[in-house]
Design a protein around this nucleic acid. Structure first.
Lengths: 136, 136
DNA sequence: ATTGCTGCAAACTGTTTGCACTTGA
DNA sequence: TCAAGTGCAAACAGTTTGCAGCAAT
């Protein structure tokens, strides 16, 4: 079931604005900020307002359709949750982000459960460090 | 060498304000927000200003004496870096934070280096999920 | 005596909110 | 039709900045 279908099936109205936010979110290869979504939206519909973007993102988060990642640069970014089977390696020097598969975190997840009884929800993880290029 | 000694040895002035920020940072059991530091500072010195807190934290970060962690609740928290040999498990239900030792992350660190050539700097890590109490 | 640091006030950024109008179902 | 959703403007919180005066070295 697509993102927009979920909205509709739960009784939320499928407004053009919401569709545009969902589209922007999905068309973004990786993560995208509220402002970037807003920009894309305005290209199609100049009267768009950023508060609508925030309200829609809030809704999508509640429904589990979107997730946010915060790498601490003051910009919260969002991504669609279906293809959220990855995490981020953030280079503190060049700022580049790399994907990290979920599988690679399974051992850690298990050890957290075993040692702490903690059920980790690995959906927002960002690990900081130096990428191979910046290590020289 | 203590935090204040490092400041002095690098030619930075050891002002009472800076000492108070450093003290607050060290006296905090775990992580502390700029605002909390400011509050503690004002108890001793009511004329303190929060911009000084931010400027001092910025300096301490640059010198590697402090690190910030951002769990995405809109509040950036800081901690002294010497005793930063731990990470955080953040319960998304009750909000409690638990410490996680560095050792537990060594396997992951190694696999990131091996598979991605990424030199992870595990100083700011926060892992979200449900604590044992909230899993029922 | 310098010049780095502070306090103040004002600006700035990202986000949220109240309200009247609009529109999807 | 009519509640849900939008646009607008204003409020908000956390943070940053320019500048004049102060104080650590």
């Amino acid at each position: 079931m697509s993102c927009t279908q979920v909205l509709q099936s739960k009784g939320y109205r499928l407004t053009p604005q919401r569709v545009m936010v969902v589209d922007a979110l999905h068309s973004a290869k990786r993560h995208i900020s509220a402002d970037e979504i807003f920009e894309r939206m305005r290209e199609k519909y100049p009267y768009a307002n950023i508060s609508t973007v925030y309200r829609t993102l809030e809704l999508l988060k509640e429904l589990g359709l979107a997730a946010e990642i915060n790498i601490g640069d003051g910009i919260v970014r969002y991504h669609a949750r279906e293809n959220s089977g990855h995490h981020h390696l953030v280079c503190t020097k060049c700022g580049k982000m790399f994907d990290l598969s979920v599988e690679e975190l399974v051992p850690l997840e298990k050890s957290l459960a075993r040692n702490h009884g903690f059920k980790a929800d690995m959906h927002h993880l960002a690990i900081f460090g130096l990428c191979s290029g910046c290590q020289r």
